Simulated scan of single mutants.
Amino acid sequence: MTETFDLSLEQAHAYEDLFVPALFAQWVPTLLRHAGVGPGLRVVDVACGTGVVARAASEVVGPGGQVSGVDLNPAMVQVARECVPGLDWRVGDAGDLPYGDASFDASLCQSALFFFPDPAAACREMVRVVRPGGTVALQTYAELADQPGYGPFVDAVVRHAGDGARRLLGTYWSRGDVAQFRALLDEAGAEPTSSESVLGEVSFPSVEALVQTEVGATPLADRIDPAAYVALARDVRDVLADFVDEQGAVTMPVRAVFVAGRKR
């Protein structure tokens, strides 16, 4: 079961300012490559958040192409519009996309499939809106057992924010099985054409910045009191000591998974 990130506008701004540069931006070129995005193509960014993938795709497709971004959360879409007013930003559900059949050459989804209550339905929709022969490209993360930094971090958050935090933060790592990932696309009507596991990293200037990004920019911000928040930062500093340098900056490995398929 997944949990919807119903973020406020303030949290959506924090997502853009913190999460995008710290984690999401590094995966965009690989996702675009798997999708085969090029000049003149029509592209949709599903569950676009604040639009980091759509913005990059717009640069690639150029004036002859078309890019749309859709997200269920109105605050995310508002921040996306603030970043690039000229793109087609829409509020909509990944399980019922607000586009006609075969409207795009490629549909992309970054770091979101694990949030959908029905990932199979979302994959079917992403396949539906691309033309025959078009591409669906998805990115998620390897399982928590394959994340040496985030595993101890999640344990620390749970100690201070309660068991519900494990369900929320554990969501990120719930779609990391490549075989299952490929099967989702296959069953949705897209023949898998590529898959890749990529080891990247996530960097923060301090432990405090890490906690602010991973807790303060999520619904957990409303579930933990100030005293517990301070204690959490202290605990995280201890459990992630191997990833903290002499200046106090935190750099942790994080493994992402990519899968793409061609619509039959």
Rank of each mutant, 00 (worst) to 15 (best):
M1L: 11
E3V: 13
T4I: 14
D6M: 00
S8R: 06
S8A: 01
L9I: 09
E10C: 00
Q11R: 15
E16L: 11
D17L: 12
L18S: 10
L18Q: 13
F19M: 12
F19E: 08
V20R: 13
P21A: 09
A22V: 00
F24Q: 12
F24D: 10
Q26T: 12
V28L: 09
V28N: 08
T30N: 12
R33I: 00
V43E: 11
D45Q: 09
V46A: 08
A47C: 12
G49I: 02
T50C: 13
T50M: 12
V52K: 00
V52H: 03
A56M: 00
V61D: 03
G62P: 07
P63Y: 00
Q66W: 12
Q66M: 09
V67S: 09
V70T: 06
P74H: 07
M76G: 02
M76E: 01
M76I: 04
V77W: 07
R81H: 08
C83R: 13
P85D: 09
L87K: 02
D88P: 01
L97Q: 04
A102L: 01
F104M: 03
D105L: 01
D105G: 11
L108V: 14
C109D: 05
Q110G: 05
Q110F: 05
S111R: 02
A112W: 03
A112C: 10
F114R: 01
F115E: 01
F115H: 14
F116W: 10
F116Q: 08
F116S: 01
D118N: 12
A120Y: 01
A121N: 05
A122E: 04
R124H: 13
R124T: 11
V130C: 06
P132N: 05
P132F: 03
G133R: 02
V136H: 02
A137K: 04
L138D: 05
Q139C: 15
Q139L: 13
T140Q: 05
E143S: 14
L144D: 04
L144N: 05
L144P: 08
Q147L: 08
G149D: 06
Y150Q: 10
G151E: 15
G151Q: 14
G151M: 06
P152T: 10
V157E: 04
V157P: 02
R159D: 15
R159L: 12
D163A: 15
G164I: 01
G164K: 03
A165R: 05
R166M: 08
R167S: 13
L168W: 03
L169D: 01
L169C: 03
G170M: 02
Y172K: 00
Y172P: 01
A179R: 13
F181W: 00
A183G: 06
L184P: 00
A188N: 03
A190G: 08
P192D: 10
S194D: 15
S195P: 00
E196Q: 14
S197G: 13
S197W: 11
E201V: 11
V202I: 12
F204S: 05
F204Q: 06
E208K: 05
L210Q: 14
L210Y: 06
V215W: 03
V215I: 15
A217I: 06
A217V: 04
P219H: 11
P219Q: 12
I224F: 02
A227Y: 11
A227V: 15
Y229H: 15
A231M: 08
L232H: 06
A233Q: 15
R234S: 15
D235W: 03
V236T: 04
V236I: 12
R237Y: 01
L240Q: 04
D242N: 09
V244F: 02
D245P: 11
V250T: 11
V259C: 14
A260E: 09
G261E: 06
R264E: 14
